[in-house]
C-alpha cells in the first residue's frame, strides 16, 4: 500500500512525460537505436496515437459492457432460462479463441483499418463481462433475494435496487479483464492498420530499431498497468462500500 502511494504518481508522471515530451527521453533510448537511425518515433504524435488507442479500447469496452450486461440480465430472467446452457457454452468456447486469431479473422471478413479492430475487440470483450455478470446474477445471496421479495419489491425493482448493485463488483472484475485484453489486442491491431500505439512497436520491429520497441512497449505497458490498477482500486472501493 505504502509503495503504491509513491509509485503511482511517479508512474503517471513518467507516462505523461513519455507521451507529451518524448524528446526528453532521447538520452535514455539513444543506446538502443541503430547507428545514425532515429531515436524517437516521429511519424505520428505519440499523444494522438495514445488517444486513438485509448479511444478504440473505451468504445469497444463500453459497447461490450452494455451488450454483455443486457444479455446476462435477459438470460438470468425466467423467460431466458432456455438460453442459459447455450450462453455458457458460447462463453467457454469463445474464450478459447485466441484474441490475435479473432483479430486476424476479422480481416477476411471486414478488411483492414480501425473498424475491424473495433469489432474484434467488441466481440472478444463480450465474453469475460458476460461470464462475470452471469455468475454474479446467478449467485446472489438467497436470503437477500428472499428478503427483497418479502418486502414486496416487484421484479423490476428487485433488478434495479438489489440484483444489479450486488452484482456490480464481480461484473466490474469482468469489465477490467475485458479492458486489459482489449488494451493488449488493440496494440496488435496496428498490424491490421488500426491507429494504435502498437504502430511504434511494429515500426521498431520492422526496422530493427529497439529504441522504438522500448518506447512503444513502455508506454503501452504503463497505460495497461495504471488502468488495471485504477480499476482494481475502484473495485476495492465499491466492495468495501457494500461491506463485502
Amino acid at each position: 500500500m505504502r509503495i503504491g502511494v509513491i509509485l503511482r504518481p511517479l508512474l503517471v508522471a513518467i507516462l505523461l512525460a513519455m507521451v507529451l515530451r518524448p524528446d526528453w527521453f532521447r538520452p535514455v533510448f539513444e543506446p538502443f537505436a541503430p547507428a545514425g537511425g532515429p531515436v524517437i518515433y516521429e511519424r505520428a504524435s505519440l499523444l494522438s496515437l495514445s488517444l486513438s488507442h485509448l479511444g478504440i479500447v473505451a468504445l469497444a469496452s463500453l459497447a461490450a459492457t452494455i451488450v454483455a450486461v443486457t444479455l446476462a440480465i435477459l438470460v438470468t430472467r425466467p423467460a431466458g432460462a432456455a438460453f442459459r446452457p447455450l450462453s455458457r457454452t458460447i462463453t467457454n468456447m469463445g474464450q478459447t479463441f485466441p484474441p490475435v486469431a479473432v483479430l486476424a479473422l476479422t480481416v477476411p471478413a471486414l478488411g483492414f483499418g480501425t473498424g475491424p479492430t473495433l469489432v474484434a475487440l467488441f466481440l472478444y470483450g463480450l465474453l469475460p463481462i458476460f461470464e462475470n455478470a452471469f455468475t454474479a446474477l446467478t449467485t446472489l445471496p438467497p436470503a437477500t433475494m428472499d428478503a427483497a421479495r418479502g418486502i414486496g419489491l416487484n421484479r423490476w425493482q428487485r433488478l434495479i435496487r438489489v440484483e444489479l448493485p450486488l452484482a456490480l463488483p464481480v461484473t466490474l472484475t469482468g469489465i477490467r479483464l475485458s479492458i486489459v485484453i482489449a488494451l493488449g489486442t488493440a496494440t496488435i491491431g496496428s498490424t491490421v492498420a488500426a491507429r494504435t500505439l502498437g504502430e511504434v512497436i511494429i515500426a521498431g520491429l520492422l526496422t530493427n530499431n529497439t529504441a522504438f520497441v522500448l518506447q512503444g512497449g513502455l508506454i503501452v505497458g504503463l497505460f495497461a498497468v495504471l488502468i488495471y490498477d485504477a480499476l482494481v482500486q475502484l473495485e476495492g472501493y465499491l466492495a468495501r462500500r457494500m461491506g463485502g
Binding site: 486489459v180 488494451l183 493488449g184 512497436i201 520491429l205 520497441v213 505497458g221 498497468v225 488495471y228
Partner: peptide
C-alpha cells in the same frame, strides 16, 4: 501486473 502488460509490448521488451 506482468500479465497486464500487452503481449506485443512484452514480446518487444524481451528483445533488448
Amino acid at each position: 501486473f506482468l500479465q497486464t502488460i500487452p503481449s506485443l509490448a512484452m514480446f518487444g521488451l524481451m528483445i533488448p
